[in-house]
């Protein structure tokens, strides 16, 4: 689809395809995408399998809450690493100027970059969650399985995954447009991805009782935050500033 004054999805698709091709061959990003999620999936599994069958409810809740938190680190951290590379990485390899001299609009550039970070993050997160549910469902104690498979908890995990990834991506891109070093951008983005985890932590540890209404309500809250973050990043995006570090006179 192509719109005269709106977004060109041809350009967005071209950018997403290029980004994913490039990430696959970027050792640092490929390793981050492969290892971090496995660590964040295996670690809570071990915790849950170590629980005795007669573990008290409080300990069971704490372990289940911890596992939910760990699994939410995947959609928080993976896209943060990718998004933080998105602009500063282009600047470092000298590709930003050639891209900005094409007809691509700021919105297309940002959405392309965001989707290229979101798609792998969501696929990896859901895959890890699926594997987690499969292994825990098949081999853990019945009371653990009962807690893990509560519908609101699963709904919260499914809803929060893309929304938390969305926050991490916009924070990562915002930082990436303002820093001149990939490592600094990645460290700052990882830190910036943490605040929304507070919500999942409260749900995971039953401070906020996980019901369908609560999950949907919090999901809507995260969605609003994501939209606001996108608007802020779009407003901050200036070709002149990206190239020269200076505001337009």
């Amino acid at each position: 689809m192509n719109a005269k004054n709106g977004l060109s999805w041809i350009r967005v698709r071209a950018l997403v395809r290029k980004e994913i091709n490039d990430y696959r061959r970027n050792r640092f990003i490929a390793v981050t995408m492969a290892i971090l999620p496995v660590v964040f999936m295996v670690s809570p599994m071990i915790t849950l399998f170590k629980l005795p069958a007669d573990a008290p409810a409080s300990k069971l809740d704490a372990s289940v809450g911890l596992s939910a938190l760990y699994l939410m680190l995947v959609p928080a951290f993976v896209p943060a690493v990718v998004a933080s590379y998105s602009v500063v990485g282009e600047r470092e390899q000298g590709t930003l100027e050639p891209v900005l001299t094409t007809p691509i609009r700021a919105g297309e550039f940002l959405i392309g970059k965001a989707l290229a970070a979101l798609l792998p993050a969501v696929v990896i997160s859901y895959t890890m969650y699926g594997v987690f549910l499969g292994v825990v469902g098949g081999f853990a104690h019945e009371n653990v399985v009962h807690d893990i498979f509560e519908a609101p908890r699963i709904l919260a995990q499914l809803l929060f995954t893309p929304l938390i990834a969305g926050w991490s991506i916009w924070a990562g891109i915002a930082i990436s447009t303002r820093t001149g070093d990939v490592r600094v951008a990645q460290q700052l983005s990882t830190l910036a991805s943490l605040p929304p985890l507070a919500i999942t932590t409260l749900v995971g540890f039953d401070v906020i009782k996980p019901t369908v209404t609560v999950a949907v309500g919090l999901g809507l809250g995260l969605l609003v935050i994501d939209i606001l973050a996108w608007r802020v990043v779009s407003a901050l995006f200036r070709r002149e500033r990206l190239l020269t570090g200076a505001k337009a006179a």
Partner: peptide
């Protein structure tokens, strides 16, 4: 079309 001083290619592609 603009060709900047450094060609700015994606070296992994």
């Amino acid at each position: 079309a603009v060709m900047p001083e450094a060609p700015g290619l994606y070296l992994r592609l």
